[in-house]
Design a protein around this nucleic acid. Structure first.
Lengths: 150, 150
DNA sequence: GTATAATAGTTGCGATAGCAATTAACTAGG
DNA sequence: CCTAGTTAATTGCTATCGCAACTATTATAC
């Protein structure tokens, strides 16, 4: 068993997944860089960019760009937070609400493609292991970032 | 269990992995976009770009750019294939051979960080499942590409 | 209350990546 | 041969992403 295999598979799957997502969501005008934010806003109407960024674990700069694009496409709108004028809250538009079920269906479809040939037990185990890896690697990245600030 | 979880974990892990890899290999002057090619050349001296591209499953354009960068940094050199002058073979330089064991050690370290808290059985299961996902998603991407050429 | 810190958002920059088109070299059919 | 099709490498373009620097607003300390 090769020691570097986990990372290589993750990379390969990620890139192919992005290609697939881009094809699926081409019809909506967005791609792999935006869909996750749209989904997250639909589950947390009124969320601000900082929270979004933490939820999806993507850099604030890219969160900002994704929001801008979704807004321009008409799927979301944003309003200034009255309590804290630095913050902007994001909401789904009617157009956004309409496509959410379709987007969720497409994502389920993609997941089904990826998990083809796995039984429920394997899928559950896989999710547990991926969750653990994410926790481990995020902790390490945080430590590196802290080290730099020393 | 959320249906879109596998993809979300894959994305998050990939991005954090890239950050980690960039930190680890900063000292050599390359990052997440090149290391995989260096490793692959070390295991297949004389390989050409087409083969490399297929091995690491990265687009030929990026394979070309990675090779150029590794060559510029002095870790590899390339020579025209006498049998087929379109093709260029890649080899490690002495400088390249020197760092390979260190790069492999770093990669093992990163894998160890990611797999922390897993026993051997879990690691093996994980690799099997990742391998299956990669197979599934590559097949799907290939089908999409074929469809387009019809 | 004012000066300093911290925080949310934003912008510029460089790295990684896929796709499409081009060039140069090889292969096969006539 | 020589023309047409194929293939390896290359280049231009665009999208995604993290980091650093900056602005505007809020919170804290004195």
């Amino acid at each position: 068993m090769k020691l570097d295999s986990i990372g290589r598979y993750i990379s390969s799957i990620y890139r192919h997944q992005s290609i697939l997502i881009n094809k699926y969501f081409e019809k909506y005008g967005f791609g792999s860089g935006q869909y996750i934010f749209l989904i997250n806003i639909s589950k947390n109407e009124g969320i601000n960019q900082k929270q979004l960024s933490e939820n999806v674990k993507i850099d604030r700069a890219n969160t900002n760009r994704a929001i801008k694009k979704l807004e321009k496409l008409g799927y979301i709108y944003t309003v200034e937070d009255k309590e804290d004028r630095r913050s902007r809250k994001s909401f789904l538009t009617e157009k956004g609400k309409e496509i959410i079920p379709l987007v969720i269906k497409d994502l389920a479809n993609i997941t089904e493609i990826m998990a083809q040939g796995m039984d429920d037990n394997q899928r559950e185990k896989l999710l547990e292991l991926l969750q653990l890896i994410e926790k481990n690697i995020m902790l390490e990245v945080d430590n590196i970032r802290k080290d730099k600030c020393k």
